[in-house]
Design a protein around this nucleic acid. Structure first.
Lengths: 378, 378
DNA sequence: TTTAGGGTCGGGAACGATTGCGTAAAAAAA
DNA sequence: TTTTTTTACGCAATCGTTCCCGACCCTAAA
């Protein structure tokens, strides 16, 4: 339809027409360029370009002509040519461990919403909790010339050199959730210490003392902070800490088997723990699932509490007490920071570490029927 | 580190050095180009390019030299320049209504896994069940010159002209889940008729006759097919169909309020329906949630069954009987088809509509404790 | 009448990579 | 030794767009 206009234009040589025709037959998506407008109107590409950008050196009539023609031909500027010229792609890369995880899908929602309004593409990759895959993803995204990166590292990631490498080269990067203090850039996280502290206190106030944790690898920032909050709550309540109550899942519970093993080990303990605290979404749900399949009564035999952003936790039986993170908001903030980093003329040196508050939602799974409930949580 | 090599090269003019220096200070990510290698080695860019592509017209020594230099300078080809030249971006766009929906996040997982291995980027956008947003997304993606598109339309989409427009222009498109028969291209879907038929039969076999449905807008392909399956099951069982038992949710249950209203209307019916059939993920979960909050006993007072890909449905109380779609596989197939479309030399005219089977997972919510259970489902 | 200057526009280089074509030097054949 | 062939490389155009640098015409001041 729009292309047909081009064919009737006398200034198009037969050769050119033939070329467009062939492309048409091959059904390849051939976009209208600034050249087509120029030929249609007998102008130069520079004039057309300037007219479209509303430059002062183009007369009003010419502008009108060009604009009208662009509209008629359905001209769309080619972002790839722009990218090549401006050395930016207006796209940002995201690396998370998994999309099919409520926390991350909500965070991505936040990322996407901000990126969209600012005219940026979002390219999402998943590390699947694998360090190697994370490195590959990073190379991939950097080589696809994204303008910046939002990263939550995999559970296997101990070494951050692969990220530092690009960061040192000047690629804007924002870290969220699982962060690293050594990299000087914006970070977005929650108050993991406080969240874990409050959750643990909630259990302790409910009369429990043997509180087990199922956690991600110890080298992750979130693990350290959450464990610290847990320990602080124990210490404040005069409860001894025991290593035997902490079970690590190296793959972050991405496969259920790992969590199952951890839960079973905890159940074999003598005396059994009175509660299980899941230190991340997958771990909480995984632990709950294992307890259900083993017909362990929650919270009677063992209470459950944990981090989770799934919307279904309140419908579980018993309904699950969770720590909910402002995932969407985290994604929004991370993206705003990243874009400001990308668009700033000169490198900034004061970086913000945004620490958001979590929400403890107390439901059935953490309240023993006979327990003395002194507090309802927050 | 790598850039420093450039500075010591004598063939670089002072002006060029100054330029790189400034960029360095501005901390802008300046990539190594083929030119840098050429200057470093005193070769032409064409020779370097050919050496890197292992052309036969380049001597073995030169190749070795270039390869070594490229490695040392950490040269990465600029995909944007490639895209401009080859008129392809090696990226595919995805439009779904929502990422934070198990079905779609799993489908995206499938899409991403195939795209990744084939060297394609995935750019994800969400329509949030809005037709306008879908049109905007489409324009956005097309203007970002994606090589192809994978689309599941929004619940508001009745008119497919916006998609046809790009399809007719030759942009490869694959439809999945919510499809349209008028567009001649590959499609990936499930046997919705059979899925709904089986689910309905399962309820009927359990002794229920007044089976209500909560559904997406009637113009969607999946709605039509599922309703047809439902009606067929009723007809085969000699049960009269009643319009009053079908409740439409125009926004596909993206906000819970809509579903709540629908469920409440069903509960006000006299006599009350014996079962509620949720015809999509959000609707099933939303209906269940509403029933829970209203303290309606499931399945005793009312049974629940529905489409859902959430992994938590088995942990609900009662555990939820669901129809599970092979979402990951659907994403994989759609992407394979799309890439073959993109990479085919000439336009194909025989398109495949892939229809996959669903899985009915019978659990507690659909089985009345006193009902005569004749069949366990499939 | 000449010239300075503003208003409009075109030419051409650039962004990074590929590629057809031309060509020097080296090797092979005469 | 001369001619032909092969080897190995450079030049320049190309993709779509922007932008610097002229260049033209017309008007107004000198």
């Amino acid at each position: 339809m729009t292309q047909r206009c081009l064919i009737v234009v006398p200034t198009l040589s037969t050769k050119q027409i033939a070329k467009k025709q062939v492309d048409r037959n091959l059904m390849k998506f051939e976009a209208v360029t600034i050249k087509d407008i120029a030929k249609e109107l007998g102008l130069s590409t520079s004039t057309v370009s300037r007219a479209l950008r509303d430059s002062y050196e183009i007369s009003a009539e010419t502008k009108k002509l060009v604009l009208e023609c662009a509209e008629r031909l359905q001209y769309r500027p080619n972002p790839i040519a722009l990218s090549l010229k401006e050395k930016r792609s207006r796209s940002i890369g995201v690396i998370v461990c998994e999309i099919a995880n409520s926390f991350f899908s909500q965070a991505i929602n936040g990322i996407e919403s901000v990126a969209y309004t600012q005219g940026y593409n979002v390219i999402i990759t998943q590390s699947h909790e694998s360090f190697d895959r994370e490195v590959t993803d990073l190379d991939f995204l950097a080589s696809r010339s994204v303008d910046g990166l939002i990263i939550s590292v995999s559970s296997e990631t101990q070494d951050f050199e692969h990220i530092k490498k690009f960061h040192n080269r000047g690629l804007p990067i924002v870290l969220f959730d699982r962060i690293n203090e050594d990299i000087a850039t914006h970070k977005v996280t929650v108050n993991n210490f406080k969240a874990a502290f409050e959750a643990t206190m909630h259990l302790i106030n409910g009369g429990m003392r043997r509180i087990a944790c199922i956690v991600n690898p110890s080298h992750l920032s979130i693990t350290k902070e959450r464990i610290a909050g847990y320990k602080q709550a124990l210490a404040d309540s005069g409860i001894d800490y025991s290593d035997s109550l902490i079970k690590y899942c190296t793959k972050g519970g991405i496969n259920g088997a790992e969590v199952e093993v951890a839960v079973n080990e905890l159940l074999d303990l003598n005396p059994r723990p009175e509660a299980i605290f899941g230190l991340s979404d997958k771990l909480t749900v995984g632990a709950f699932k294992t307890l259900q399949s083993r017909k362990i009564k929650v919270p009677d035999e063992i209470a459950v509490i944990g981090f989770s952003n799934s919307e279904l936790t309140e419908l579980l039986s018993p309904s699950l007490t969770v720590i909910r993170q402002p995932a969407f908001q985290m994604g929004e903030i991370a993206t705003q920071r990243l874009i400001s980093l990308i668009e700033s003329k000169r490198p900034s040196h004061d970086f913000i570490k945004e620490v958001l508050d979590t929400e403890l939602i107390v439901r059935q799974s953490s309240v023993k029927p006979l327990g003395r409930v002194k507090s309802s949580g927050v």
